[in-house]
């Protein structure tokens, strides 16, 4: 069910961002190692000036390669992160059973950590965005009704978490209203984030 909801481009981009984050954490090691190897070859063949030029260029390139995607990851990964797909929210129980979803969902917050899909790191799934997705997921029934009415406690909570726009979320729900629970929850989630 989930495979059809995440297209391949999204999946590829997501994995690239994840990889870039891993690179970032190890960037210091990689930077020194790569600089040493390639710098030595160039030094031998092209002399001192070339060495400086190359080192500068390569250092810049490596830094860009390792840090630029990380910056993008900080901003972009959360937008591309789909907690339903990548963090396993409601994966086991999310058919159409709101009751089960509410009482037996996976909990990242408050000290209890669990991962089911293995596609995302704990850090990625431990952020506010995932908590927002979980809130939408578990309060979907109430949230749908409150969006339809235009006000309510759960809706206020989503706005407080995301700064989302109620009209946009209503429109998103309107488009997905005949869809599955996952589709409706995701429509509200992404609309709220883009709000």
């Amino acid at each position: 069910m989930f495979g059809s909801e995440i297209d391949l481009a999204d999946e590829f981009l997501y994995r690239a961002l994840k990889l870039s984050k891993n690179l970032a954490t190890k960037s210091k090691t990689y930077f020194v190692r790569y600089l040493g190897i390639f710098g030595f070859i160039k030094i031998k063949n092209n002399g001192e000036n070339m060495k400086k030029v190359f080192l500068s260029a390569f250092a810049t390139a490596v830094l860009m390669a390792s840090t630029a995607p990380v910056m993008a990851a900080e901003d972009g990964q959360v937008e591309k992160l789909n907690p339903w797909k990548h963090c396993g929210i409601g994966a086991a129980i999310f058919d159409n059973n709101g009751t089960a979803a509410a009482i037996s969902n996976i909990i990242w917050d408050l000290g209890t950590t669990a991962l089911t899909t293995g596609t995302a790191s704990e850090d990625m799934c431990n952020g506010e965005r995932t908590k927002t997705a979980m809130f939408i997921n578990e309060n979907l029934d109430q949230l749908e009704l409150e969006l339809a009415v235009g006000e309510g406690q759960a809706l206020e909570a989503v706005v407080a978490m995301t700064g989302g726009d109620v009209v946009s979320m209503r429109n998103a729900l309107n488009s997905a209203v005949d869809g599955t629970r996952v589709e409706k929850a995701q429509a509200i989630y992404f609309s709220a984030l883009n709000g």
């Binding site: 159409n96 009704l145 009415v149």
Partner: peptide, 24 residues
């Protein structure tokens, strides 16, 4: 939670409400 008729009826209510201006 497994009653499909209730779910469909609820969906109809949501759809109808979405056609009105927001506000309780």
């Amino acid at each position: 939670p497994d009653n499909e008729n209730l779910k469909q009826a609820r969906r109809d209510v949501i759809k109808s409400l979405l056609q009105y201006e927001p506000g309780n």
